[in-house]
Nucleic acid binder design. Structure first.
Length: 416
RNA sequence: GUGGCCGUAGCUCAAUGGUAGAGCUCCAGGUUGUGGUCCUGGCUGUUGCGGGUUCGAGUCCCGUCGGUCACCCCA
C-alpha cells in the first residue's frame, strides 16, 4: 500500500524537517506581530468560482459532490478562506489585521520536483491597510523568513511587479479596463512562448505591438514601485528584490503589487508568491465589507529541496536538528537490582523537563552505551553501585563525574 | 492533459538469453560496569502485472499498471 500519487507519508525524519520549517515560519511571524488562525480544508466549490477569485487554479481543483449533493472542494490555497472569515468577523478585531496560517492545500496536478498534490503552505496576510508601508512590511516578512533559513540574495530573489503599472500602460494606449485580464494572460505567457504566438494574440489589441511591450518591460525605472523599493532599502532588504514587470501571476484577484520568490538553484522554481488584493473581500461578501489586503503564501515543497542545495542553509538546518534531539539523557542501568533506583531518577529527570531514555529490557552495559550513542543523547547517567550517587558521562568528551543524584538537575543545567 | 526516462530484497543498485546477488539498514550473538570501529550469524524476492518469442526470459517483443522528470501553471 502506497499513499496516493502526490501525497506523502512523513516518516519521523521527514516530519522533523517539516517541523524545522514551520518552527521558523512561526517565529518570524511572531517577530512581525502576526497571529495564527486556521480554517477548514474543505470549502464549498463556489468560494473559488466566484467572480474575480479563481483564475487558472480552478482547473486544479480537487472537487466532488458530498452525500448531501453539495459541490465541495479541498482548498487549493488559503486566501479565499481567509477573505471569507475576515469578511464575516473583521469587526471583532482592530485594524490592521496581521494574520497567518500554516496548513495543507491541495491541487490536482501532476506530481513533479517541488510540486505535490498536498503541500504545506505558510500564508501571511495584512488586512485593512492600503499604504505602501503595508506592502513593504509583507515583503520584509517574506525576506526575513527566507533569511531565517540561511538563504541569501544569491540563493533567492523576489521578482516584484505591480499590476497598476500595466493598468496605466493600457490606459495610455486606450485599451478598455475590461480587457485587463486577457492582456495579463499574454504578459504571463510571454516569457515562455515564441514571439509569434504573443504577436498573434496581441493582434486583438489595437495600438499594441510586441516592440511596445518589450520597451515597457525593459524600462529601467518603474515609478510606481519606487516608494516601495525605497522603504525596502531603508530596511536593508533591497538586495533581495528585483523589479520585473513580466510577473503578473495567474490568480485573478490581484489588484496592485504582485511578487514571486524564486530559488536561484535547482531549476528556478517559485518558493513563494503573493500580492495585493484590495477587492477580493468585497467581492466575496457581495459588497458588504471592503478591506484592502496584501499577502503571500510560501510552500514547503521547494523550500525542503532548496535548503539542501544551499550549504549555509543545510548547515543551519543540521545544527537545529542537533539541538532538538528527543533524547538528552540515556540512563544506563548497571544491573537489574538497580532498576527501581533508575526508574526514580528517570521519573525525576523527566519531571524536570529532560528527555530521558533507557533500555526497557535487561541489557549488558556495553549494549546500553551503544544504544545511548544511537539516540544521540548528550549524557549517559549510570545508576548502579555508587547509589545514592550516580555517574554522569558526557558522551562526546567521554568525561565522567560522580555526584549525588539529587544534584543531577543543577549539574545538567550548568552543562547545557 | 502531452512527452522523455525508469520498474530486481526495507533502501541503493548488480547479474554477455543459462542456478537471482552485493553493500547498507534491521534482528541475534561476540560470558559478569563503558560507546561510533570490528567479527560471526540471521530475515527479506510471485525480478510491478499479463501475454508472446525461445530448449531456457530479470534480460528480447507487445500490452498494461505504477513511479519519476519535463511541459502547462505555480507553493
Amino acid at each position: 500500500m502506497k499513499p496516493l500519487s502526490g501525497f506523502r507519508d512523513l516518516l519521523p525524519p521527514d516530519f522533523a524537517r517539516r517541523h524545522y520549517i514551520t518552527t521558523q515560519w512561526r517565529d518570524v511571524a511572531r517577530r512581525y506581530g502576526f497571529v495564527e488562525f486556521d480554517g477548514p480544508m474543505l470549502e464549498s466549490a463556489e468560494l473559488y468560482q466566484k467572480k474575480n477569485s479563481g483564475g487558472e487554479i480552478l482547473t486544479q481543483l480537487y472537487q466532488f459532490t458530498d452525500r448531501g449533493e453539495r459541490v465541495l472542494a479541498l482548498r487549493p490555497e488559503m486566501t479565499p478562506t481567509l477573505a471569507r472569515m475576515v469578511a464575516a468577523h473583521h469587526r471583532s478585531f482592530s485594524k490592521p489585521l496581521r494574520w497567518f496560517n500554516i496548513g495543507s492545500s491541495f491541487r490536482y496536478e501532476r506530481q513533479q520536483r517541488g510540486r505535490w498534490r498536498e503541500f504545506t503552505q505558510w500564508n501571511c496576510d495584512l488586512l485593512g491597510e492600503q499604504s505602501v508601508a503595508a506592502d513593504a512590511e509583507i515583503i520584509g516578512l517574506l525576506i526575513d523568513a527566507l533569511r531565517s533559513f540561511g538563504l541569501g540574495p544569491n540563493d533567492v530573489v523576489i521578482r516584484l511587479s505591480d499590476r497598476l503599472a500595466w493598468q496605466e500602460f493600457l490606459q495610455k494606449h486606450h485599451v478598455p479596463f475590461e480587457r485587463m485580464g486577457e492582456f495579463l494572460g499574454i504578459i504571463d505567457k510571454m516569457e515562455r512562448e515564441p514571439r509569434e504566438k504573443t504577436e498573434e494574440k496581441l493582434a486583438a489589441f489595437d495600438g499594441l505591438s510586441f516592440e511596445l511591450l518589450q520597451e515597457f518591460l525593459a524600462s529601467p525605472e518603474v515609478p510606481i514601485l519606487a516608494p516601495l523599493l525605497e522603504e525596502l532599502s531603508a530596511r536593508g532588504l533591497r538586495d533581495y528584490v528585483r523589479p520585473d514587470l513580466s510577473i503578473v501571476r495567474g490568480l485573478a484577484y490581484y489588484t496592485g503589487i504582485v511578487f514571486e520568490a524564486f530559488a536561484l538553484h535547482g531549476g528556478l522554481r517559485a518558493v513563494a508568491g503573493g500580492g495585493r488584493y484590495d477587492q477580493l473581500i468585497e467581492h466575496l461578501s457581495d459588497g458588504a465589507v471592503s478591506l484592502p489586503a496584501v499577502g503571500f503564501g510560501m510552500g514547503d515543497a521547494v523550500l525542503l529541496e532548496l535548503l539542501q542545495l544551499v550549504p549555509q542553509a543545510a548547515k543551519q538546518e543540521q545544527s537545529w536538528m542537533e539541538r532538538h534531539h528527543p533524547c538528552d539523557i540515556y540512563l544506563v542501568i548497571a544491573a537489574q537490582e538497580h532498576r527501581p533506583m533508575a526508574m526514580a531518577v528517570a521519573q525525576q529527570l523527566r519531571h524536570e523537563g529532560w528527555g530521558v531514555l533507557f533500555s526497557l529490557t535487561p541489557e549488558r552495559v556495553g549494549k546500553q552505551f551503544s544504544a545511548a550513542e544511537q539516540t544521540k543523547a548528550r549524557f549517559a547517567v549510570v545508576v548502579g553501585e555508587e547509589w545514592p550517587q550516580v555517574k554522569v558521562k558526557n558522551l562526546s568528551t567521554r568525561e565522567e563525574v560522580i555526584l549525588p543524584q539529587e544534584e543531577l538537575n543543577n549539574w545538567l543545567n550548568l552543562k547545557t
